[in-house]
Amino acid sequence: MLKACLKNKREAQKELYRRFSYMMKGVCLRYSSNTSDAEDLLQESFIRVFQNLHKYKDEGKLGAWIRTVTLNCVFEKYRSAKKDKESVLYVEEYFEKAQELDDILEALALEDLLQKIQRLPEGYRIVFNLFAIEGYQHDEIAQQLGIQPGTSKSQYSRARALLREMLIKEGYFHSNTVNYDK
């Protein structure tokens, strides 16, 4: 199938898309604020996959490679958007009940958690996804997004604070309120 894709055979390309689009849309949904943006990202990712398929070496799983291409799209989009607006950094500590938040997030229904992640501002959402779900370190995230490691840490903290605030509003927490004004 890969060989046929490399020869631009449309049927093979469609088959590859059919096999991986379900999973990749899940990834895109996590990095986007809504379904429409997620599908735009998915489309862009697959176009790039087909354009760069010759670079794929048959060493790892194709799914993992496609996921990397998708994440690269996310990074690129973030970097280009970052140029247009000045990042305002808030390096501050939030006194949160860390373990309690983790427990609640893990216990949340998948769709519910996804909805909350999607409501995060773009930068927070990307850092949270990369750190908490993909398993990237802050140094790696900073390198990929072209930001300082401290910024990555603070954005992750703010993402958690925002998630916590959402959960408080929904009655999961009954403790102190966090000011997350940007």
């Binding site: 990749m24 899940g26 599908e39 997030l105 750190f131 993909e134």
Partner: peptide, 18 residues
Amino acid sequence: MTNKLNTKFEDFGSIPNP
């Protein structure tokens, strides 16, 4: 939390619009 959330989203997907 990382591993647990990762596992949570492992099989998550959605059928894209045609």
